[in-house]
Each structure stands twice: as structure tokens, then as C-alpha cells.
Amino acid sequence: MPSPTVVSPEKLRATFRWMLLARALEDRIASLYRAGGSIVGGVYLGRGQEAFSGALGACLSKDDGDIFGGLIRDMSGRLAFGEPLLDPVRAYLGSAAGPMRGRDGNIHRGRPQEGLPAMISHLGSLVSVVAGMLLARRMQGKQPCVGATSIGDGATSTGSFHEAVNMAAVEGLPLVVAVANNQFAYSTPTNRQYACENLVDRAHGYGITGYVVDGTDLQACLETFTQAVEAARETGKPQMVVGKLLRLAGHGEHDDASYVDPALRKEPSGRDPIEVAATYFDDAEVRRWQEDALKQVSEAVAKAQNEAGPDASEESWLALASAHLVEGQSE
């Protein structure tokens, strides 16, 4: 067993503030979605997963070349890792100024050359991409850096996930896989997803180290991810962290999640991680941070709302970097 990890008060506070920012932003995006007219496409929230996701993002170092392959419910982790606040705002509002330029949006966003690969919808498929980024770093002598990605309980059933974790284990890559077991994949409960006792049992099968953590408790999440990230950095081997929590929203904002038994909210795993973490701090201080988060969100939304969407007449329509090989260019 690794020795107990000490999490500094600064790190706890900083991560909590990213969680508050993520929550404030997602609340705002959800309300814009309900109001209609400004959000392009669907909205998928990370509510309930802010501690688990944020702790992972906060334990990585973007400046040192770490990688964070965020997924659907990683607003908090992406922000903590260093994604600019304007990126998700622009992606959701369809601004052409964001890195996806209106060609993709909402959760499908990233800055691949800054350690933020841009997820595609197909679940499970990002794990091997992060592994490949790490392999490249190793071949280029740029180690030790760590790559992390997250996955839901449902997506652990994909062949893609299995292939990638097994491959990362075979290649010995410093990959941290964060499994956010939020008890549902859209409407499907976990007993229709897997038959093992606990998803962490799979780590043994891959020959990698597994960790279990209370995904609603920021302190615990920070301790565990600190250990896992350090272990990946030191041993160069994959680590799997499984967090138990509950999705405190619909699958997307179009979904009322009426299939979720309200009793689950009363379980320890149904706690709101923001309420849990708020107890570590002084109420007045929390309120100040919340106000600051709201202000940042308002400014970012106001800015993106004034930006134009993409102009189809100015779109290059080039799917290849080799423009001379794009069909129909001469016509």
C-alpha cells in the first residue's frame, strides 16, 4: 500500500474553485439551453462528477507536458487542467472564434497540441489516442509526463476501451484511466453493463494498479489521483482509478432522468460533491468564490455571445491538410 498522501490546503482550495466554476458554467449553459435559441446542439453536464474530474485535472501539470483526454462529464477536470474558460463557452454557443471554429462543438472540443485531445463521440476510442500521445513522448525522449483520460461505467463495456487499456499495459505507458462509475449509462444501470463485482477488478486482469475512491469527496479524490499520477510518472505504467458517484443530471439536458430511483440520491454516492467540499471551508469564503465564478462565467458568455458563428461562404471545406489532394478543388 502506498503511504498516505498529503494534499495541501492550497490544492484543495484551488480544485474546489475549479469545481465551482464548472458548476456555475454548466448551470448557465443549461439555463441557456432551456431558454432556447443560443445553444447549438445538445448539452451534457458533469454535475455530480466535479470532484472526481476536477481532482484528476488538478493532479496533472499541463506546463510539464501532461495530457488530459477529457470526456463528456469533464468540465471541471478540463478547466482544472488548463482549458481556457472561453473554449467550452464558445463551443456551446457556436462561436467561430473557438478552437473548433463551429466545425464541432459542445463536449467535442480540444487543443490536441496542448495536451487536450478532442474527443469524438464514439465511446472508448480516446484511450488509445492518449496512449499514442504518450508513446510519442517516450520515443521523443520527453518523459516523464503522464496522460490521463476518463471513461464512464458504460463505456468500459466497449471493445475499444479493453483494447486500449490492454495495449497501454503491454507498452508500459504512464496512462491514468479514471473510471467515473455514475451508476448509469444513459438509462442503463450497471447490472446491464458488467457482471464483475467492481470495475476495479479489471485492473488486475490488465496487470495494472487499481484504486477505488469515493467520487463525491474531493479530499479523497485528490489523495487518490495524486497517488495514481505519481505512480504513473514514477513507474511509467498505467493506473486505473474507479470512483463511485451518481450522475446528478439527465444524460443530457433533454433527458429528465425519471428512470433514476430518487432513493439513490440519499446514498453516500448520491451526495453532491460541491456540498461535500463546501464543508471544508468557511461559508462566507465559499460564497465569495461562487460569486467570482458567476462573474467569470457571465463575462465569458457575454463575450462569446457577441462573436459571430461560422460563415459557410468562408469555410474552406478542406478535409485534408494536403489541399492539392482534395477532390473538386479545380472545379
Binding site: P112, Q113, P117, S125, L126, V127, S128, V129, V130, A131, G132, M133, L134, L135, A136, R137, M139, Q140, G159, S160, E163, A164, N166, M167, V170, E171
Partner: peptide
């Protein structure tokens, strides 16, 4: 160091290549 046996995982092999390519390799 540049010719590597892969596991029988075509999905992961291509994913790995994509990740490496993002980082400047030419797999």
C-alpha cells in the same frame, strides 16, 4: 526502437497511431 509488435487490437493500434501523429510522429 521503431518497429514494434502490436497486440491483436486493430482499434487500439490505429488509436495509438493517431495519438502519436498528434505529437509529431509519422506512424
Amino acid at each position: 526502437d521503431r518497429v514494434m509488435d502490436a497486440p491483436i487490437s486493430e482499434d487500439a493500434m490505429v488509436g495509438l497511431a493517431i495519438g502519436a501523429a498528434i505529437e509529431g510522429m509519422r506512424p
